[in-house]
């Protein structure tokens, strides 16, 4: 279909879609007039059941913890899928150009000293913020998903400050693969402990902590958050490494 005709078709379809969408939206409760039991129930039940004061994490890691296991594995599967797609490509490249020659013949422009200094300065604070986010799911607006992403950023800053090519020789992909698997399995295993000790998957088996809203409150919530943080960090690093590796392969292919 030609672009102009397609646009015309889209405008007609979108107008109809928009009309139905707005019609449907007018049927929702007015903004600010929340209806439905769950929000109020979580307000009342969270502190009693978990001693945690961060309700969003309590929902994610306690009330619908089983869903979050699935959510975590979506990320795991996507990272694995990306690795499969990209590594197949890299192997093809290596066959064409004879392996080592690809990365050896690349002239990567030097990172400027300003960028390196800034990246080094930011690495420590970024890692600290990521760690804080990962370990404070039970009390603060944080959790493993956010913390993992920030911790991965710290490692990317290290890549930026140094030579990714040199770091790659240590083959971080093998390490990140393993760490990702440990993080993903950790969450599932915490659930299995609940099954053995408490009778249901992800049952609360750890002491809730004496003080409501303390760092050690929340039972399994901090532990699950930590597992998720490790998994997310490794998954992000895996994705970043795959794309960075791809850039080098492409550059090598262009040069040869």
């Amino acid at each position: 279909m030609r672009p102009e005709r397609r646009l015309l078709f889209f405008v007609a379809a979108a107008a109809g879609f928009a009309a139905f969408l707005v019609w449907g939206l007018t049927g929702l409760p007015a903004f600010g007039h929340y209806r439905g039991p769950y929000g109020y129930l979580i307000d009342r039940l969270t502190v009693h059941y978990t001693h945690a004061t961060g309700l969003v994490s309590a929902v994610n890691f306690f009330f619908r913890g089983f869903d979050t296991v699935g959510e975590e594995f979506i990320l795991f599967v996507a990272a694995t899928g990306l690795a499969t797609v990209m590594r197949g490509l890299r192997e093809e490249e290596n066959e064409v150009s004879g392996g080592e020659a690809v990365s050896a013949g690349v002239s990567v422009p030097r990172t400027s000293d300003g960028v390196r200094t800034l990246a080094l300065l930011l690495t420590g604070p970024t890692l600290l913020i990521g760690w804080w986010l990962t370990t404070h799911a039970q009390t603060d607006p944080s959790g493993g998903f956010q913390g993992g992403a920030v911790m991965a950023t710290a490692v990317v800053l290290i890549y930026l400050a140094g030579e990714y090519l040199k770091l790659r020789r240590a083959d971080p992909i093998v390490v990140t693969d393993s760490v990702e698997a440990v993080g993903a399995a950790g969450f599932a295993i915490v659930g299995l402990f609940g099954l053995v000790a408490g009778g249901t998957y992800l049952a609360e088996v750890l002491p809730l902590g004496k003080h409501i809203g303390a760092v050690n409150a929340g039972g399994t919530i901090p532990l699950i958050s930590l597992c998720v943080g490790v998994e997310v960090m490794a998954a992000f690093l895996l994705v970043v490494s795959e794309f960075l590796g791809q850039t080098l392969v492409l550059k090598g292919a262009l040069d040869s």
Binding site: G39, V56, T68
Partner: peptide, 30 residues
């Protein structure tokens, strides 16, 4: 939806949809 003081029985915005947004973002990244 974060309590610093639980004695006053505060009303929070719905934490369930916020948790769902988090899921949404994770799936989007994947």
């Amino acid at each position: 939806p974060y309590f610093s003081d639980v004695s006053g029985r505060p009303v929070t915005v719905d934490p369930v949809v916020q948790a769902l947004v988090l899921t949404d973002i994770v799936v989007e990244v994947a």
